[in-house]
């Protein structure tokens, strides 16, 4: 019985830790499919986390999510204007956006909560059980007793897959990411597609940040995303730019983060820092194993010449 509880707890923790990553990675998948790599996704998550906290205090968790979506969208809009419209280097612009997000959230956070922080009395998302299914041994608790945002993320993954591979807008998106010249010749406005894909991607990253606060940690702290946005980028590669692959990869990384829980529950005395390192090392390993076999959008990261 002990084993069942531990395993069930592990699955639940894995899904919980994987959900913010999933949101951000789905957003980045959309963005990268348009040929844009947005390292500002880390910054979008961070402003999303803070906006989610402020919105959560103001009007409850759903208001928090909406505020986070808006904040993530705005952060990515700034990125998009610089990197897509003005054609500044995407990698460095993304780094700068993340840097700026650290500064902005720092200022706003201190202003709003002082140096003591927001405390822990933020209303978070309750876990919702799926009838019957949540009673499945081991997996049930983890997969079917989760906050609404988790179920929503899975639905979004499916919707994104349908959008990318089954609609004419998805076809246009892929064409832009693979060959902007060809897309332009087909009458597609490359810049518009990239702008929309980047901003919507940022919205998803913002929601990811809100998920971190409102469905996982329960409070905000400076720099609390701690590189999750960058891990999301690795997840996109590991998931081979396919929403369903990204879903699986995000769960895998959630599992890596939850290992600490598992090891502690099993009574192993391993320094916790090793678990802090693990997701990043796994991300590296994943990139190593996947790059070369899977191919990303051909025009990824290349600033396009004209409209």
């Amino acid at each position: 019985m002990e084993w069942v509880a531990v395993a069930g707890g592990f699955v639940a923790a894995a899904v919980r830790a994987g959900t913010p990553l999933l949101w951000a990675a789905l957003g980045e998948t959309l963005t990268e499919r348009s040929g844009v790599i947005n390292l500002g996704v880390e910054g979008a998550m961070l402003v999303g986390a803070l906006a989610g906290t402020l919105g959560g205090f103001a009007g409850g968790p759903w208001v928090g999510v909406i505020a986070a979506a808006g904040a993530g969208g705005v952060a990515s809009l700034v990125f998009a204007v610089l990197a897509i419209v003005a054609r500044a280097d995407q990698i460095i612009t993304g780094t700068a956006i993340t840097l700026g997000a650290v500064g902005v959230t720092g200022i706003v956070f201190r202003r709003a909560f002082g140096s003591t922080g927001p405390g822990l009395d933020l209303e978070t998302f309750p876990s919702v059980s799926v009838p019957l299914l949540h009673r499945i041994p081991v997996l049930g608790e983890g997969l079917f007793h989760q906050p609404a945002l988790t179920y929503l993320a899975v639905l979004v993954a499916g919707a994104l897959a349908w959008f990318v591979f089954r609609t004419r807008w998805g076809l246009a998106l892929r064409a832009v990411g693979e060959s902007p010249e060809a897309a332009r010749a087909a009458g597609i406005s490359v810049r518009s597609v990239q702008l929309v894909a980047t901003v919507v991607g940022g919205v998803a990253a913002g929601i990811g940040g809100a998920t971190l606060v409102l469905a996982q940690v329960g409070t905000f702290a400076e720099k609390m995303t701690a590189g999750r946005g960058f891990i999301a980028i690795a997840i996109v590669v590991l998931g081979r730019w396919h929403p369903m692959g990204v879903l699986a990869a995000a769960l895998f990384f959630g599992g890596a983060s939850a290992l600490q829980f598992l090891f502690q529950a099993m009574g192993f005395d391993v320094p916790y820092q090793l678990f802090l390192m693990l997701p990043y090392l796994l991300a590296l390993a994943a990139l190593t194993g996947v790059v070369g076999k899977a191919r990303g959008p051909a025009a990824l990261g290349v600033s396009s010449d004209e409209g």
């Binding site: 612009t93 500064g103 720092g106």
Partner: peptide, 9 residues
Amino acid sequence: YVVQAVTII
């Protein structure tokens, strides 16, 4: 950081 970010941009 804001100053740095804006400078880079």
